[in-house]
Write a protein that binds this DNA or RNA. Structure first.
Length: 864
RNA sequence: GGGCGCUUGGCUCAGUUGGUAGAGCGCAGCCUUCACACGGCUGAGGUCGCAGGUUCGAGUCCUGCAGCGCCCACCA
């Protein structure tokens, strides 16, 4: 059957990359080239749990890098015949969006502010943030993230990602809220979620709880302060401790020493008296105390750090909290229950001087008081130590006691470790990061945040007849009615006018941590419960591509949710990409003055060039931004255009189907080239099966250059021959077949250049063409093809070129006489390519001699 | 403190069962009628971090060390 040529584009006289991106992107959209066909069976479908980028963040080249990796795999699978489920999500809920809205509009959310419907933010943000109601704030968040999502989609389209845009979702959208609330209610029903009052990692700037996974450490200057405590039984010597947080002295609830520490053993179970405040605290033993550190005796405060929490919990100590949620020292009534002390008036006088201060100011002030009182021993000793921060925060985390929702992960450790072993990791070494995290879990996952733009908890609390909120008996939403907003919807069995009234209800104020939603991306994208037919066809998914820095957050939490709801892995494979580093090898985003925006790079070098650079980064390996690599990629794309134009412009092209050639058309050199190409197909396929797109590209590219430099040059003369010459027909058939295979091998990378050349002589998109098979090459090459023919001919040609180059002659300069010395086997192989070699080298007399190794004697003509 | 990874020509990196060191960039030289100057060809350049070991043979396997990066840790 002869395909219609009416839709084909003619081959331009001078091929160019200009304009092809817009043209093909529009065409793909119009033709639905990447549309997902949901009628296919699970076995035919390859589903990808695409990372939803945080839309409030700026797009950087790191996104381009890792999304290109995934796209090459998606395209490979699609060409292998899989129906690829490749949705795109936008992560728009959560703190990053709130922060962006605050900056962008110059507003802040004040839940107590009067709601003004139709509020319009100022044209330019004022110096003083405008307080807006929660509904207004959430509305602004939605508006701005919708704008950001358009910009993201624009970039992804320009990058040529083969996603099906009709499957896009957002993490604040109704589907995501419904899935997150449903999963939460089911976990609550199974006892996997619970609410508890507990010491909580707290960011004082954002005034919200944060999770263990969101911590990072920063080196900060501090100082050890040596403090002398009195002893309750009047021992004059007292006891000394060292602390970096003297401002927490009022929150001291015990001193601890190691049980084996002989220095302090006599003091155990006696009482110490805090300086300034005169509070009697027990001296206790705990294994965690390091006798080598500081004084070997530590003060336990509620709470200075996570060690304090451990001591507090394991030693059954009381809470004496001084740091409030605003990060300031709160009021204390000394002498009242829980705050008993020897001299309440003195304690009150000392404390009142620091109340209301932030920790830094309180520290300076209290150290002054301690020095004056003589309790400070010596000078504070400066140290640099690691301090825990919320990764987006500006002040060190505090630990405050608060009521939060948790997901029970600590009990699940063994199951989660087993899932980690079951998951196929690419590269495999990334599994250890997951294991280290799971093994290091110290508690359950806190999923509630005291913020506004997120998925609300589908929970209310009854208000009793006295107007007290009964937090112990939450009212749960009906799963059929999700998503709900407890701040505007009323719980089952109640009317809205009962909100906040005795005998009525109040809504839960918190929203879920953004990971509590993102951990459900397979369910959200796959239509869990909303579309059971689709879900059965795509879940568990095949691939989770993501960056290495969010293994402990996104990957881990997704495994947790899937384990709880489905008791299986959410995907079979995880492909972990590295980071993009600045040219100066700093992690992207952490160094300043980085002007390399993705759009600039795409515009300057072209999409295929940028994709080439991205795909050159090995899986899991950090890679520097390298515009040199982009230039190489651009050159490669242009070369693909030019080589294709040459092959397709030969006489009588496109020629006959290579499979229908008469015997004798394909020459030994052609067969050798096709056999080599078959090996490349095999290697590239194997590499892609292992998610090693970089290897597939490298092998294809290496072959392609040899194909152009050597094979093309060798057969050029023969290929110009007329249709009556079988060897000319064979050359053209081999060239055309190789071109077809190469276009398909490059298609996942050079998405636009390959589509352009494909359109010159093929129907349909190359991106829906069949991935090349070894068999289609071997059947044309024949059984007795000898790859050595190409090797020897290339080696001799290379020698001829060297001599001509060193003699400052052009490649077309004639060779009067050529003597090739080599082993008999290699000479035999050479003989099979002799006509092509003679023509390509413009060789007159050619003789051979048997010898050990190869030697080529070249005698150039005196004149051309 | 524990763990993972990296260390190959000036730069960025390949090197998959151990068998005579590779690519690109950069550099130097040459070549433009006949696919490609948004080119092509040719060339120079490396005792594969260090020290041992296994082996006929080690960039490749083992041990130790060093430097760099990252992850984790209870950082008082």
């Amino acid at each position: 059957m002869t395909p219609s040529t009416s839709e084909r584009r003619s081959i331009p006289g001078k091929p160019s990359l200009e304009g092809i991106e817009e043209r093909w992107a529009a065409r793909w959209e119009a033709d639905g080239v990447y549309r997902f066909d949901r009628s296919r069976s699970r076995a035919e479908i390859f589903s990808i749990d695409t990372p939803p980028p945080t839309v409030s963040g700026s797009l950087h080249i790191g996104h381009v890098f890792s999304y290109t990796h995934t796209d090459t795999v998606a395209r490979y699978r699609r060409m292998r015949g899989a129906e690829v489920f490749y949705p795109m999500g936008w992560d728009d809920n959560g703190l990053p969006t709130e922060r962006r809205v605050q900056m962008h509009y110059g507003v802040r959310c004040d839940p107590t502010a009067v709601h003004q419907p139709g509020f319009v933010p100022p044209e330019t943000p004022g110096r003083q943030a405008v307080a807006v109601s929660r509904p207004t704030f959430v509305d602004l968040c939605r508006q701005l993230s919708a704008e950001d999502e358009l910009a993201f989609e624009e970039l992804w389209r320009q990058l040529g990602l083969s996603v099906d845009w009709s499957l896009a979702y957002t993490t604040i959208g109704a589907r995501a809220r419904r899935a997150a609330q449903r999963a939460f209610l089911r976990e609550l029903g199974r006892g996997q979620a619970y609410r508890a009052e507990a010491p909580t990692l707290w960011d004082v700037d954002f005034a919200t709880a944060v999770a263990q996974a969101e911590l990072e450490e920063r080196q900060r200057p501090g100082a050890y302060h040596r403090l002398r405590f009195g002893l309750g039984d009047g021992d004059g010597q007292g006891v000394e401790i060292e602390t970096t947080r003297p401002e927490l002295l009022a929150a001291c609830v015990a001193l601890v020493a190691h049980p084996e520490d002989d220095r302090y053993r006599p003091l155990l179970d006696r009482q110490a008296i805090t300086p300034l405040f005169g509070v009697r605290v027990p001296i206790l033993a705990h294994e965690l105390v390091d006798p080598e550190k500081g004084a070997g005796m530590a003060m336990v405060c509620t709470f200075g750090d996570v060690t304090d929490v451990t001591w507090w919990r394991e030693l059954g100590l009381p809470v004496r909290a001084v740091i409030g949620r605003d990060g300031r020292l709160g009021p204390v009534a000394w002498g009242s229950p829980g705050w008993e002390c020897d001299d309440p008036a003195r304690a009150q006088a000392a404390y009142d001087q620091v109340v209301g201060m932030r920790v830094e100011a309180a520290r300076r002030h209290l150290v002054g008081q301690l020095a004056a009182s003589g309790a400070l021993v010596g000078e504070p000793r400066p140290v640099t130590h690691a301090v825990k921060f919320y990764e987006k925060g500006e002040h060190p985390l505090e630990i405050v006691s608060s009521r939060q929702w948790f997901i029970r992960v600590a009990d699940l450790r063994e199951e989660l470790l087993a899932r980690g072993k079951e998951l196929r990791w690419h590269p495999p070494a990334m599994q250890t990061r997951y294991e280290a995290w799971v093994q290091g879990l110290t508690g359950d996952w806190n999923i509630s945040r005291q913020r506004w733009f997120g998925v609300p908890f589908p929970v209310w609390y009854p208000v009793d007849a006295d107007g007290e909120v009964d937090a112990a008996h939450p009212l749960l939403a009906d799963e059929e009615l999700l998503p709900v907003d407890p701040s505007t919807d009323s719980p089952p069995g109640y009317q809205e006018d009962q909100r906040g009234r005795p005998g009525g209800f109040v809504g839960d104020d918190d929203v879920m941590d953004t990971w509590a939603t993102s951990s459900l991306t397979p369910q959200i994208a796959g239509g869990w419960e909303d579309d059971p037919d689709l879900f059965a066809r795509v879940f568990p998914m095949d691939l989770r591509p993501q960056a290495q820095d969010i293994i402990r957050t996104w990957l881990f939490t997704t495994v947790v949710r899937s384990e709880m709801e489905h008791a299986k892995l959410p995907w079979s494979d995880a492909a972990i990409s590295g980071w993009v580093l600045d040219p100066d090898r700093k992690k992207m985003g952490k160094s300043k003055g980085n002007a390399l925006t993705p759009l600039d790079l795409l515009r300057q070098h072209g999409t295929d060039a940028v994709r080439y650079w991205a795909a050159s980064g090995r899986p899991g390996t950090d890679t520097a931004v390298d515009e040199g690599q982009m230039k190489v990629g651009r050159r490669l794309a242009i070369k693909v255009l030019n080589a294709s134009r040459f092959v397709l412009s030969l006489p009588g092209q496109p020629g006959a189907d290579p499979g229908s050639l008469e015997p004798g058309c394909i020459q030994p050199l052609d067969a050798a080239m096709l056999t080599r190409l078959a090996g490349v197909v095999q290697e590239a396929t194997g590499a892609f099966e292992d998610y090693d797109y970089a290897r597939a590209l490298e092998r294809t590219e290496a072959f392609f250059w040899a194909f152009c430099d050597d094979y093309l040059e060798l057969v050029k003369g023969r290929a110009y021959g007329g249709p009556e010459l079988p060897e000319a027909t064979g050359a053209r058939a081999a060239l055309t077949l190789a071109l077809s295979v190469l276009a398909r091998l490059f298609a996942p990378f050079l998405v636009f250049a390959t589509e352009e050349v494909w359109s010159w002589w093929q129907d349909g998109s190359v991106h829906r063409a069949a991935w090349p098979e070894v068999a289609e090459l071997r059947s044309v090459a024949g059984q007795d093809a000898d790859p050595a023919v190409m090797d020897v001919a290339t080696a001799v040609l290379s020698q001829i070129r060297r001599v001509k180059s060193e003699s400052n002659r052009s490649p077309r300069w004639p060779v009067t006489r050529l003597v090739v010395t080599d082993t008999p086997q290699r000479l035999a192989a050479l003989a099979r390519a002799e006509p092509d070699l003679r023509e390509a080298g413009k060789i007159g007399e050619l003789s051979t001699a048997a010898g050990e190794g190869m030697a080529v004697q070249v005698v150039l003509a005196q004149q051309e």
